[in-house]
Design a protein around this nucleic acid. Structure first.
Lengths: 190, 190
DNA sequence: GGCTTTATTGAGCGATCACTCAAGTATATA
DNA sequence: TATATACTTGAGTGATCGCTCAATAAAGCC
């Protein structure tokens, strides 16, 4: 008896993710979303409830894709190979709306206001860090890196370096590929 | 014959810098500024012209202080000593409104909108990077690091690492001191 | 004290914000 | 085909945005 929506909800979330990712939370107005997603206010609120609710879905999608991307890379190149390849991959992916990490942008923008979304971004970043730590642990067990390193500490440093790299990659005065290679090279000395 | 302002303009700029630094551009309303600086709208606009103009002054102040701070540190500890000390210094300074770099926050927030302030932040970051490069060059000339390194490349990597570190230092799930020490230790291997 | 000059005040401007809702439209079942 | 059920539409809500300006107060010079 009902009528089906004319839109693809998942596609809209991915589209919203790209807009939020690029422009940030405050930088994206409902006008922007309505225009890009081609939804009138009524449909928007029927579909997602609020701007923040859609942002939360976008963050979730972003984080999920990030982890599964890393997992797939590890499957292909092994744990250390994945960790070494990721820096270049992330700055050379040309289809991304922007190079910087959406989680860190969200956290940086909204933490001072104690916004719910900042907490969600923080949680997603912890999951990602845990994923990195697992890969370092696997690399250690495989003998690819020395046993005298704390995988959690390596993961924190690695994630920190990636955040810096991705921020730097937004600047045209910086050769991000060089930084990415230096990060990868450092992993060989472990 | 005239009447003098009752406020200290420099102090107001420093205060505005801290508010903008913490809350970002969109996250800071004129209501916020009027309340914190204790200026009514009329006085505010007579003194600074616009929100963006005050933000530009705040950015400038921030960048100037950053460079002169680094110069002073180099005077005290030498070029390599300053570069090694800075990571810990910047995350342990307890009087800062927030750990993350104001220039990178500004750039990340406003770059997508092609805002003037993003360009200004970018320019300030280049100056800072040049300052780092000079210190690496001095350290090289002093024989403190190998001659087979490009100071500009080292500076770009170093600045990138600092940005990541300072972002990470905002998170309570991360031991930023460990990252800072690892960054400093890496400089010894050059 | 009188006068000029500037600082201070705060009500209020138009624009935009996130969001609502009643009316209209399309579709799956009966 | 008739009806029930959702989806779609867009004008319009109150709140807040950055900002203006006419009125008032205060300070320096004669």
């Amino acid at each position: 008896m009902p009528r089906k929506p004319s839109y693809d909800r998942d596609a809209l979330i991915a589209q919203a993710r790209d807009i939020f990712w690029r422009q940030g939370w405050a930088g994206t107005s409902l006008k922007d979303l309505e225009r890009e997603l081609k939804l009138k206010p009524g449909s928007f609120y029927a579909a997602f409830g609020s701007k923040d609710a859609l942002y939360a879905l976008a963050l979730q999608r972003y984080a999920q894709d990030g982890v599964s991307n890393m997992m797939a890379l590890a499957q292909e190149l092994g744990p250390l190979g994945a960790l070494k390849a990721q820096p270049r991959r992330v700055i050379e992916a040309s289809e991304l709306p922007t190079k910087a990490c959406m989680l860190s942008k969200t956290y940086a923008e909204l933490q001072a206001k104690d916004h719910d979304l900042a907490d969600q971004a923080r949680t997603h970043m912890i999951v990602m860090k845990t994923c990195f730590a697992d890969l370092f642990r696997q690399a250690q067990n495989a003998g690819e890196i020395g046993a005298d390193h704390d995988p959690d500490r390596l993961a924190a440093r690695y994630q920190s370096d990636l955040l810096g790299l991705r921020l730097s990659a937004e600047r045209d005065d910086i050769n991000a590929v060089e930084i990415a290679e230096d990060i990868a090279t450092d992993l060989d000395r472990l």
